[in-house]
């Protein structure tokens, strides 16, 4: 049985519609138009124990809403879900003890106190035995290189440092299921990488099941076995990342290194030249033509090295959201 099972999960928000301007505001005091927004539409998926799954989708696609329902914060309008055998929104203590949610845009740490105090409070709330707590805290602090910052008030920490502390707070009680909602948002490249590496390590050692949402393709590429794409509240894709790329892209990239200078004009008959500086070039060819083009290039040009690559996943995702169904396999 899957660790996480979600069936037809739907969430509709009712929001009062406010008309702009003073007149609109006054009118709104007496009669309000209520609009219904369906944030999540009949979403279904399954996740096995130990899997790391990435949720991808543009802003407002329903990723966060789904995570909030799975962590018991929001009550769904309809549908069912089971995580670790519990229904999340019943918020059983036994369930909440085993899960954790990190939100990149919100902080759960005590703003005016050092992070160490927040960890202690969490230790009490989650009833972590002293021994486990010390061992885990040491591990986490070492991995994230947090040592001296633990005793600094949270409001004096930088965003990156705070995010690291947030991760410690989320993992200090060794949850079995971890929901990460944009854990790298707003961070610089170095901090992003650091957090990614930490999560990879954690994944390997702790064996927890992770759902991750992110706008950064690299997070998903490096951490996730599987990707679920949500758009306008519905799941539009759910499979391995490699399959996504092969399904949604009808072409591949030939990366070439030459022994001596090759003009762009000589490459153009094989495919679309993406870049060429004379000694290295990237040529985009149709998927079905890949082998033939590669053979032709090898026999006709002074090639010293050739690699065949999939199109950048980021590019593929962009296509999924801009073109949508256009990229079915038959189109290629």
């Amino acid at each position: 049985m899957a660790l996480i099972e979600v069936q037809n999960l739907t969430k509709t928000f009712r929001t009062p519609k406010k008309e702009p301007g003073l007149a609109g505001a006054v009118k709104g005091l007496f009669s309000r138009k209520v609009t219904e927004v369906t944030a999540v539409k009949a979403v279904s998926f399954e996740i096995a124990a130990g899997e790391t799954v990435g949720f991808l989708g543009p802003n407002g696609a329903g990723k966060t809403t789904t995570l909030k329902m799975l962590s018991g914060i929001l009550y769904p309008t309809s549908g069912a879900a089971s995580v670790l055998g519990h229904t999340p929104w019943q918020r059983d203590t036994a369930y909440l003890r085993q899960i954790s949610l990190v939100m990149g845009q919100k902080n759960q740490l005590w703003w005016d106190l050092p992070a160490a105090d927040s960890f202690l409070l969490l230790k009490e709330i989650y009833e972590v035995p002293q021994e486990d707590y010390e061992k885990r805290l040491k591990e986490l602090v070492d991995l994230l290189d947090l040592g001296p910052l633990l005793n600094t008030q949270v409001r004096r920490l930088s965003l990156g440092e705070r995010m690291k502390c947030e991760l410690v707070a989320a993992l200090i009680y060794a949850p079995r299921v971890v929901f990460l909602d944009e854990p790298t948002i707003g961070l610089d490249v170095v901090s992003q990488k650091r957090i990614r590496e930490f999560l990879k390590d954690h994944q390997k050692n702790a064996g927890s099941t992770i759902i991750l949402t992110s706008h950064y393709m690299q997070d998903i590429q490096e951490l996730c076995d599987r990707v679920v794409i949500i758009d306008h509240g519905s799941v539009v894709f759910d499979d391995r990342l490699a399959i996504l790329v092969s399904r949604y892209s009808d072409s591949r990239l030939l990366k070439l290194t030459f022994e001596n200078t090759v003009e762009t004009i000589d490459l153009e008959r094989f495919g679309k030249v993406m870049e060429n500086d004379g000694t290295t070039a990237v040529v985009q060819v149709e998927r079905s033509e890949t082998t033939r083009a590669a053979a032709a290039i090898l026999s006709q040009l002074p090639v010293s090295d050739i690699t065949i690559d999939e199109i950048d996943a980021e590019e593929v995702i962009r296509r999924v959201f801009t073109e949508k169904p256009a990229a079915s396999p038959s189109a290629g």
Binding site: L96, L101, K106, I125
Partner: peptide, 14 residues
């Protein structure tokens, strides 16, 4: 502000 999220997340009576 939505910080209620964390309150509801804790394994204690909300």
């Amino acid at each position: 502000l939505g910080t209620m999220d964390f309150t509801l997340l804790r394994p204690v009576n909300s």
